[in-house]
């Protein structure tokens, strides 16, 4: 597992792609992570206050998500997210209010108009594919989209995310098999937070790393410290470049941790120790990134506070707008079953 980020000022001459990131880019990435975190925390609060029926969190996963997004071309590349990808979709161009509208099931929810549960992201303009609830179905669909780009002869890349527990599904296997057979411009990011709800990773698989399975599909596999935004960026740059050059697919396994319960309906005290959670809170991806930014003199205490205030103000605005937004009319339930039938005459 690579984790040189905290020394990255020293490793600058090594020519890592992340060395090319400008201060402005680094700050933008940091701001997105903070914004996602504040939005996520507010969602928890609203749930606990009884104002939001359900929340599923991305807290702890922000580094790999924001790093990956930084390597993509939003609206050009295709992205199939999963439910923890709040930071990812924000980095791709969705707005805090988009999440809030979904959280409250409001008509303006751009993902589904309040039809789906929260965090089932979709945005056709940004080429963010719609996800359902059954896990891993998006993987072979994403392979099909990557095949479309390849057959069309365009250099779009398709990225798909899922959790490590979901890699037990056949959909994952079949999708990666296609990616290998057709050498697709395809990147599968497994966000390995070490649990599938309560089931620890050793009960999901006998291999040490999900990425070890890449060999079985004839694609590249990489394990990366998913809490270290800069090494995530390095790995993703390489994967995206390979895909764009037509050199095939990559399975990226980002080792991370979910510091919150699985969802607002879960109690993680029933299956893991507080010490374990505490340990990972010390490895919080935002904390680790701040250390780098402080070390490089990009971030100061004042700027940090300013960014946090900005993020909270953004979340306040998003919440207010969503709270005041209308619910879908009941007639909406009967809409969008089929497209308009062509005007046929036999």
């Amino acid at each position: 597992m690579a984790s040189a980020a905290r020394n990255s000022t020293k490793t600058k001459p090594s020519g890592r792609p992340s060395d090319q990131l400008t201060d402005a880019q680094l700050l933008k990435m940091y701001k997105t992570m903070v914004l996602s975190r504040k939005l996520d925390e507010r969602s928890w609060v609203m749930n606990r206050q009884g104002r939001a029926p359900f929340h599923i969190s991305g807290i702890g996963h922000e580094a790999i998500q924001v790093a990956a997004a930084e390597t993509l071309r939003p609206g050009y590349d295709w992205f199939y997210p999963y439910y923890r990808d709040l930071a990812f979709v924000l980095a791709m161009g969705m707005k805090p209010v988009d999440h809030m509208l979904g959280l409250l099931g409001k008509a303006g929810d751009p993902s589904s108009g309040g039809i789906q549960m929260p965090s089932h992201f979709s945005n056709a303009k940004l080429r963010i594919g719609s996800i359902s609830s059954p896990v891993a179905t998006q993987v072979p669909i994403a392979a099909g989209t990557a095949l479309a780009s390849k057959l069309k002869g365009v250099d779009e890349v398709t990225v798909v995310c899922l959790g490590e527990g979901s890699t037990s599904q056949g959909d994952f296997h079949e999708g990666l098999n296609w990616a290998g057979v057709h050498k697709l411009p395809f990147i599968c990011i497994v966000q390995n937070n070490q649990y599938a709800i309560s089931v620890p990773v050793e009960k999901e698989m006998a291999v040490k790393n999900v990425a070890d399975r890449a060999a079985a599909y004839g694609i590249k596999g990489v394990v990366v410290d998913g809490n270290d935004v800069l090494v995530c960026y390095d790995v993703m740059v390489e994967a995206v470049e390979r895909a764009r050059r037509g050199e095939g697919a990559t399975l990226v396994e980002a080792k991370t941790y979910r510091v919150t319960p699985h969802s607002s309906d879960d109690d993680d005290r029933t299956y893991r120790s507080r010490e374990e959670v505490e340990y990972w809170k010390q490895r919080d991806p935002i904390l680790l990134f701040e250390n780098v930014l402080f070390e490089r003199g990009i971030l100061t205490e004042d700027l940090k506070r300013e960014i946090e205030d900005w993020a909270i103000a953004e979340v306040d605005k998003a919440e207010e707008e969503a709270v005041n937004a209308p619910y879908p009319d009941v007639s909406e339930m009967y809409e969008h079953l089929y497209g308009p039938a062509p005007n046929w005459e036999e």
């Binding site: 179905t137 993987v139 072979p140 669909i141 994403a142 392979a143 099909g144 989209t145 990557a146 095949l147 479309a148 057959l151 056949g170 959909d171 079949e174 999708g175 098999n177 296609w178």
Partner: peptide
């Protein structure tokens, strides 16, 4: 599964 799924993705 993936004959249909890749069809969807296409």
């Amino acid at each position: 599964l993936s004959i249909v799924a890749t069809g969807i993705g296409l």
